[in-house]
Amino acid sequence: VTVDIKGMEYHFDNPEEAKKFAERMAKELGGELKVENGTLKVE
């Protein structure tokens, strides 16, 4: 699973970990979490 945090890509084997990480980063950065082509994106 790929997580894109404002252009920086992180790769996770575990989808649950990827989702938790993306949600935490969205909250910390005040960004919006989206799913695009199987990639979790925070913008």
Rank of each mutant, 00 (worst) to 15 (best):
V1D: 02
V1F: 13
V1N: 06
V1C: 14
T2F: 09
T2W: 11
T2E: 02
T2H: 05
T2N: 05
T2S: 07
V3E: 00
V3W: 01
V3R: 00
V3Y: 01
D4L: 15
D4W: 15
D4P: 01
D4S: 15
D4E: 14
D4M: 15
D4T: 15
D4H: 15
D4A: 13
I5D: 01
I5H: 03
I5T: 01
K6L: 15
K6C: 15
K6M: 15
G7Q: 02
G7H: 03
G7V: 02
G7C: 08
G7W: 03
M8Y: 13
M8W: 11
M8L: 12
M8S: 08
M8F: 13
M8D: 07
E9N: 08
E9R: 14
E9F: 14
E9Q: 15
E9G: 06
E9K: 15
E9V: 15
E9W: 12
E9M: 15
E9S: 13
E9T: 14
Y10C: 10
Y10T: 02
Y10L: 03
Y10K: 02
Y10R: 01
H11N: 07
H11Y: 14
H11P: 02
H11T: 09
H11M: 08
H11Q: 07
H11L: 08
H11E: 05
H11C: 11
F12L: 01
F12K: 00
F12N: 00
F12C: 06
D13G: 08
D13C: 10
D13M: 10
D13N: 11
D13P: 09
D13V: 10
N14E: 06
N14D: 14
N14H: 07
N14V: 04
N14Y: 05
N14F: 05
P15T: 08
P15V: 13
P15I: 14
P15Y: 15
P15C: 11
P15W: 15
P15K: 08
P15M: 15
P15E: 12
E16M: 10
E16A: 10
E16R: 06
E16G: 06
E16Y: 09
E16S: 07
E17H: 06
E17F: 03
E17T: 06
E17S: 07
E17R: 03
E17N: 05
E17P: 00
A18L: 02
A18G: 08
A18E: 00
K19F: 14
K19T: 10
K19A: 10
K19V: 12
K19N: 07
K19W: 15
K19H: 12
K19R: 14
K19L: 15
K19Q: 13
K20F: 06
K20I: 12
K20P: 00
K20V: 10
K20T: 09
K20W: 07
K20S: 11
K20H: 08
K20E: 13
F21A: 02
F21E: 02
F21W: 09
F21D: 01
F21Q: 01
A22K: 02
A22I: 08
A22L: 07
A22P: 00
A22H: 01
E23R: 02
E23L: 08
E23D: 10
E23H: 03
E23F: 03
E23N: 03
E23M: 07
R24F: 14
R24Q: 14
R24C: 14
R24P: 02
R24H: 14
R24N: 12
R24S: 13
R24E: 14
R24L: 14
M25S: 04
M25D: 04
M25E: 05
M25C: 12
M25A: 09
M25L: 09
M25V: 10
A26C: 12
A26S: 06
A26T: 06
A26N: 05
K27Q: 13
K27V: 11
K27D: 11
K27N: 12
K27E: 12
K27M: 13
K27T: 10
K27Y: 13
E28Q: 07
E28K: 09
E28P: 02
E28H: 06
E28C: 13
L29D: 04
L29A: 04
L29N: 06
L29K: 02
L29T: 08
L29H: 06
G30C: 11
G30L: 07
G30S: 09
G30W: 06
G30N: 12
G30Y: 07
G30I: 05
G31K: 04
G31Y: 12
G31M: 13
G31N: 04
E32R: 10
E32C: 08
E32F: 15
E32S: 14
L33F: 08
L33S: 03
L33R: 01
L33G: 03
L33I: 14
L33M: 10
L33P: 03
L33W: 11
L33A: 04
K34P: 03
K34V: 13
K34G: 04
K34C: 10
K34A: 07
K34R: 13
K34F: 11
K34W: 11
V35K: 07
V35Q: 09
V35H: 09
V35D: 09
V35C: 13
V35P: 04
E36H: 11
E36V: 14
E36Y: 11
N37I: 05
N37K: 07
N37Y: 06
N37L: 08
N37P: 06
N37C: 08
N37R: 04
G38E: 05
G38I: 05
G38Y: 02
G38V: 04
G38K: 02
G38D: 07
G38Q: 06
G38A: 06
G38N: 10
T39K: 14
T39H: 12
T39I: 15
T39C: 08
T39G: 07
T39V: 15
T39N: 11
T39Y: 11
L40K: 01
L40S: 03
L40A: 04
L40C: 09
L40T: 05
L40M: 09
K41R: 12
K41F: 11
K41A: 04
K41Q: 06
K41M: 09
V42H: 03
V42E: 03
V42G: 03
V42R: 00
V42Y: 04
V42P: 04
E43I: 15
E43K: 09
E43G: 10
E43H: 13
E43M: 13
E43P: 05
E43R: 07
